[in-house]
């Protein structure tokens, strides 16, 4: 292939409360990929992400991140993860949006160092990129659901990550806002070369914008998304034989991420 694998998973088995949720997963994520993670609810998408990040123990299998075994990997500043329930914080927590996003600059390297002007300018440009500059002085509890999600992505961006992992970032957000969000992510992927892995239920967005697909329902199947890809062939492996997804490429708006 010649492409650099940022994540390599082999023979991964993960159990949660006694039952196997991920069975014998094997896949790779390459630099520059824009990967959609799809599958039915309860199929193990979040479990897979958490195990990949070492936040959940695994039964067996190897996981390598940026060429290193997960257990020995320490350059976490390269990876940004926005969890599904990031937005379920205490609405009374005393933080402004700008303050929260600035916490993304923290890490092992900056331990105990005050934030400098260049840190704050990164914060401000991430807020602007995500379109929430106007809300920067607001308290985080005052934001709408969509704004909260964009705030957490901004917090991920200020870390200058090479890989961003997002778990259902647009759940419960209106269609127009979702579309804008996917556009932003395409921009990040294409213009800044950031590798993106995103759990999504919006199959149209996945097939229009993303370059690869990971289908998760206990088993994990991976496919390249090409103009001639038949979505149903792979989706049925996760959603069952009766699943039928009607998709016409001409419905896609904006650019294709991988054409």
């Amino acid at each position: 292939m010649g492409k650099e694998a940022l994540i390599e998973v082999k023979g991964l088995n993960v159990a949660r409360s006694g039952s196997l949720v991920i069975h014998d997963a094997k896949f790779e994520i390459f630099r520059g990929d824009y990967v959609g993670v799809v599958g039915p609810n309860g199929g193990g998408k979040t479990t897979l992400l958490l195990a990949m990040l070492g936040l959940l123990p695994r039964q067996s299998g190897t996981i390598r991140i940026f060429g290193k075994d997960l257990e020995r990997f320490s350059e976490w500043e390269k990876v940004a993860y926005v969890s599904q329930d990031a937005i379920n914080f205490d609405p009374g927590f005393p933080l402004s949006v700008r303050e929260l996003v600035s916490l993304g600059r923290l890490g092992k390297r900056n331990l105990g160092r005050p934030l400098r002007r260049d840190d704050w300018s990164k914060v401000d440009s991430a807020l602007e990129f995500m379109g929430i500059s106007d809300a920067s002085a607001k308290r985080i509890g005052e934001l709408s659901g969509g704004q909260k999600q964009r705030m957490f992505v901004a917090m991920a961006l200020v870390r200058d990550p090479e890989l961003i992992i997002l778990d259902e970032p647009v759940a419960g957000v209106d269609a127009a806002t979702q579309e804008k969000f996917y556009q932003k992510m395409s921009d990040l992927n294409q213009r800044k070369g950031i590798t993106i892995l995103m759990v999504s239920h919006d199959l149209t967005a996945v097939f229009c914008r993303m370059s690869r697909l990971i289908c998760v329902n206990r088993e994990v199947n991976v496919a390249e998304i090409r103009p001639d890809t038949d979505p149903n062939e792979i989706l049925r492996k996760a959603y069952g034989d009766h699943f039928h997804f009607v998709f016409h490429r001409h419905e896609c708006r904006g650019e294709f991420s991988h054409d």
Partner: peptide, 14 residues
């Protein structure tokens, strides 16, 4: 950061 979200802080390398 730890007070706000301990797990994310751990991931961020704090």
């Amino acid at each position: 950061a730890i007070t706000f979200d301990e797990e994310s802080s751990r991931m961020m390398g704090i």
